[in-house]
Design a protein around this nucleic acid. Structure first.
Length: 535
RNA sequence: CGGGGAGUAGCGCAGCCCGGUAGCGCAUCUGUUUUGGGAACAGAGGGUCGCAGGUUCGAAUCCUGUCUCCCCGACCA
């Protein structure tokens, strides 16, 4: 089976490059996806200058290009959150230990990966170092938030008295800490950045509606903003958030065929309401517990973008989330005409920046840093700027520009960068459309790849095992019918799958009804569930 | 947290077994010649060899501890 990134591309540009000129192409990265996907992923992060190691286990320094992408995601997501009537708040990073003890499943889920603050002062150890002062031990340890249900639940209990106070719709942008055993940049770090929405409602119906609204918001953001196709659906019981009655997710397919849980939305029932005393008086004067929800997406999305859109030349950033959508590189030669070239570039920059693309002011960078344009070009290719424009003295004289689209980097005929020597005004006039096209092209490519790699109609565990056999490097996902077992029966299913390094992803929302028998239990199937290797 | 691998200049690595002036390629800086598409040549700068102890006249090299990263597993909304 060929790698997923070669599938679903038909006779498109990239395939022809592969066929005709691959050997001639000198890629901007050293590692190819096909040779070592994990090493390639890390190389993209360093080559695109997105993040670096920090010296603290599992924690990273997010550099301007990586953080700029996160800021774009934040901006677009925050707009969607606010449009839904949710208000931003900020809650403390330190949570009293006692808060966590209230919800039994929640404790169990997070206890093993908690950072705990036990002292509030340091003291000299007599050997030139510092130690926590034994005299300054906290009466009650504070945990560094791994999520904020408990502390926000406290606030909700204070803020809600009447049915008139509902629904209460809050969100916070914050960092959280989970002491992970094994970390990977962006995908699983000990500290990460996210948003967590927390809402309280009068009824189960209202809370479920909010759970689904958030899920749909995530689907729309992933697909329309990040150009990352996802499958929205409900998580099986064993994958639920600790303390949730229902957990829903969006699952994205990475180029190596693995699934990435890219966002979750939980219906928490009245579990946290009981734990924190979130109650309201209804219209009849009776006391009721609130139904709550929580939902979040994190910097993990940046990892998802890398593994969805990256190629053997680095990252490709969808225009909607690119910090710079167009980068202009003047060809400077330490000659008198340099000034005129720069002025010409500045005119082009200003003309572009004056316009809108994809509903926002166009983000254009004139890169004046010293150095040859040809060298800087590859830096921007690795970073994945959607459009790179190079301008030399002769372009200036002729009113032209050399335009390079990152999604069509190579000329299939000669294996060289696929420059289009465009008329200046025509390019300026068409730039917004071109950015829209790139956004669409990246999404279409990823969606075709995903669709080509979901296998349906698998009716036995033997078939599943064969499908995910060792020699198949890119098996993608499999959808099977099952009886939705729970408890110990489900545990056995999970164990069976684990032996094949497989996990249950989700039951796609609005999927076809099941008609056959469960491949795990042999009982009549009730729904279809996705099975895949996962990050 | 268990097993394995690694940490030497910004990046990629050699040197370690067998202790004796810290090296190579790329990148950077300077100069010259070039230059419409990832320039060539010459010269130069840059390293407490992850950190802390120990052995030794002498440690990148040997020993102990520790931190961090990678791979496999366990774990992981």
């Amino acid at each position: 089976m060929s790698p997923p990134w070669r599938q679903g591309e038909g006779d498109c540009h990239f395939s022809r490059v592969i066929a005709t000129a691959m050997s001639a192409i000198r890629h901007a990265l050293n590692t190819k996806r096909e040779d070592d996907f994990a090493a390639w992923y890390q190389e993209v992060i360093s080559a695109a200058d997105m993040a670096e190691e920090s010296g603290v286990r599992g924690c990273m320094v997010i550099k301007p290009w990586g953080y700029g992408i996160w800021e774009r995601i934040q901006r677009l997501m925050d707009d969607r959150i606010k449009a839904a009537g949710v208000q931003n708040c900020y809650f403390p990073i330190f949570i009293p230990l006692a808060n966590f003890e209230r919800e039994a499943e929640h404790v169990e889920g997070f206890a093993k990966e908690m950072a705990v603050v036990t002292h509030h002062r340091l003291i000299a150890d007599g050997k030139g170092g510092l130690i926590p002062d034994p005299e300054a031990k906290l009466e009650e340890p504070l945990v560094v938030r791994p999520t904020s249900e408990t502390i926000i639940g406290d606030a909700m209990a204070r803020w809600i008295q009447s049915w008139r106070d509902l629904p209460l719709l809050t969100n916070q942008w914050a960092n959280v800490v989970r002491w992970e055993m094994r970390t990977r940049m962006f995908l699983r770090t000990s500290e990460f950045l996210w948003q967590e929405g927390h809402t309280a409602h009068a009824t189960r119906e209202d809370a479920l509606e909010e759970t689904h609204r958030a899920l749909e918001m995530y689907r729309a953001c992933a697909e329309d903003d990040l150009a990352m196709p996802v499958i929205a659906g409900e998580k099986p019981e064993n994958e639920r958030f600790p303390g949730a009655d229902e957990t829903w997710s969006i699952e994205a397919m990475m180029q190596d065929g693995k699934a990435l849980q890219a966002g979750t939305s939980h219906y928490l029932g009245t579990n946290f309401a009981h734990a924190a005393g979130i109650k309201y008086q209804d219209k009849e004067g009776g006391e009721q517990f609130c139904h709550t929800t929580s939902w979040g997406v994190s910097t993990r999305l940046v990892g998802g973008i890398i593994m969805t859109h990256g190629d053997d030349d680095g990252l490709r950033v969808p225009p909607k989330i690119a910090p710079h959508q167009i980068v202009i590189l003047p060809m400077l030669r330490d000659k008198p005409e340099d000034g005129a070239v720069l002025a010409y570039c500045e005119e082009v920059r200003a003309a572009l920046a004056d316009q809108s693309a994809l509903g926002e002011p166009m983000r254009v960078l004139l890169d004046k840093t010293p150095g040859k344009a040809a060298g800087k070009r590859w830096d921007w290719v690795r970073k994945g700027a959607p459009i790179i424009v190079e301008v030399g003295p002769r372009d200036m004289e002729n009113g032209k520009l050399a335009v390079l689209r990152r999604d069509r980097l190579w000329n299939p005929d000669n294996g060289k960068p696929n420059f289009d020597f465009a008329d200046r005004d025509a390019f300026i006039g068409g730039a917004a459309d071109m950015l829209g096209e790139i956004q669409q092209a990246l999404f279409a490519e990823a969606r075709e790849r995903r669709d080509a790699n979901i296998t349906r109609g698998v009716t036995s565990m033997d078939e599943v095992a064969a499908h995910f056999a060792e020699d198949k490097r890119y098996p993608g996902w499999v959808e099977v019918e099952w009886s939705k077992p729970s408890g110990e029966t489900l545990d056995k299913v999970v164990e069976q799958l684990k032996a094949l390094k497989l996990t249950l992803r989700n039951v796609p929302r609005g999927g076809e009804a099941a008609s056959g028998t469960c491949i795990f239990t042999g009982e009549p199937a009730v729904e279809r569930v996705l099975v895949a290797r996962a990050y």
